[in-house]
């Protein structure tokens, strides 16, 4: 991977970032109602409004307003929460860790289990096992995450009574660090699995196609002819290139996972960004809602960028110009 490729790819990020900023800006501009009322509340007098207008540059031309907006966002200034009176960045920064933990675990879980399932189905192509996995993934793919979550609570937590259904930790503080981690793990298990299951289906379907494609290639035939054990052919040889289609969509999957996390956090009372967002919707705390949109958008762009760089490692045949 050459430095030139990284630089070229980095330059391609710029239009996406500008596009996101433009969408955010235009939506605020087009929204009904005077932005001053939104910024300063409805109880101020004319002098106060004029002051706010000047302070936020609302009396400047559109291009200048956009420049101010873009500079602020890129500096990490996402505005002040109406309700909490604190910078949105700080609030998001506090709530991001539970969500990162939840989505991170779900991302790893869905990637590993999905690829394994896809490889398993591909090596048993057109058998009952393959068809069964296909039907299962197709159905799971169609299932709304809130439904899976509610069923999981009904089955595991209420009926079987084996796992906690709400929150991130037990009411009674666990004794010691290890017990604390175990307690967190127990609370994390069900929400992370629910969040992952839809993505497991997506990854499994893509991985199956990838493995079927690769297993028919010449180098696989060579490896088999050498007398390599089949599991080494599949996992050692075909795997690398078969997972490329899975890697290409990791950015999009991140978007899915984060929006799924909003629902999962509501269902399981997980104290992350999703809960923050829903509460912000109820209190009409616009800067938080907008900040959330920007943070998710930029995360997707960054994830796409990293994935693009990882192709070269997965498939050395891809030449970087």
């Amino acid at each position: 991977m050459s430095f030139r490729y990284v630089r070229r790819r980095l330059l391609q990020v710029i239009p996406s970032v500008v596009g996101i900023l433009l969408v955010g800006f235009l939506l605020i501009e087009l929204a009904p109602g005077d932005p001053v009322l939104a910024l300063a509340g409805e109880s101020g007098d004319e002098a106060f409004y004029a002051d706010v207008r000047a302070r936020f540059g609302l009396d400047r031309p559109v291009a200048e307003r956009f420049a101010t907006y873009a500079t602020n966002v890129l500096r990490g200034d996402l505005g002040i929460s109406y309700v909490q009176g604190r910078p949105v960045v700080d609030i998001i920064g506090e709530r991001i860790w539970p969500t990162l933990l939840l989505t991170g675990v779900a991302l790893v879980l869905s990637t590993v289990v999905g690829i394994a399932l896809g490889a398993f189905a591909a090596t048993r192509r057109r058998t009952a096992t393959d068809v069964g996995i296909q039907i299962a993934t197709l159905t799971i793919d169609a299932a709304p995450i809130f439904w899976v979550g509610q069923l999981a609570i009904l089955a595991f937590a209420l009926y079987l009574g084996v796992l906690p259904v709400q929150g991130m930790s037990s009411a009674v503080e666990p004794d010691g660090v290890l017990a604390g981690i175990l307690d967190l793990g127990r609370h994390l298990l069900l929400p992370a699995a629910v969040l992952a299951i839809g993505q497991i289906a997506v990854v499994a379907r893509m991985a199956r196609i990838g493995f079927i494609e690769e297993l028919s290639q010449d180098y696989v035939r060579t490896a088999r002819a050498k007398g390599l054990a089949e599991h080494r052919v599949v996992l050692g040889h075909a795997m690398r290139r078969a997972v490329i289609p899975v890697a290409t969509v990791i950015g999009g999957r991140l978007g899915h996972l984060v929006s799924g996390a909003v629902i999962v956090e509501i269902i399981f009372g997980w104290p992350g960004l999703g809960r923050m967002l829903v509460i912000a919707m109820q209190t009409r705390d616009m800067p938080i809602i907008m900040g959330m949109f920007l943070v998710v958008s930029f995360s997707v762009i960054i994830a796409n960028f990293i994935t693009d760089l990882s192709y070269g490692w997965l498939d050395p045949r891809i030449a970087y110009r």
Partner: peptide
């Protein structure tokens, strides 16, 4: 394509 539909 990078716009997150749900959040938008």
């Amino acid at each position: 394509q990078v716009l997150p539909r749900f959040f938008l």
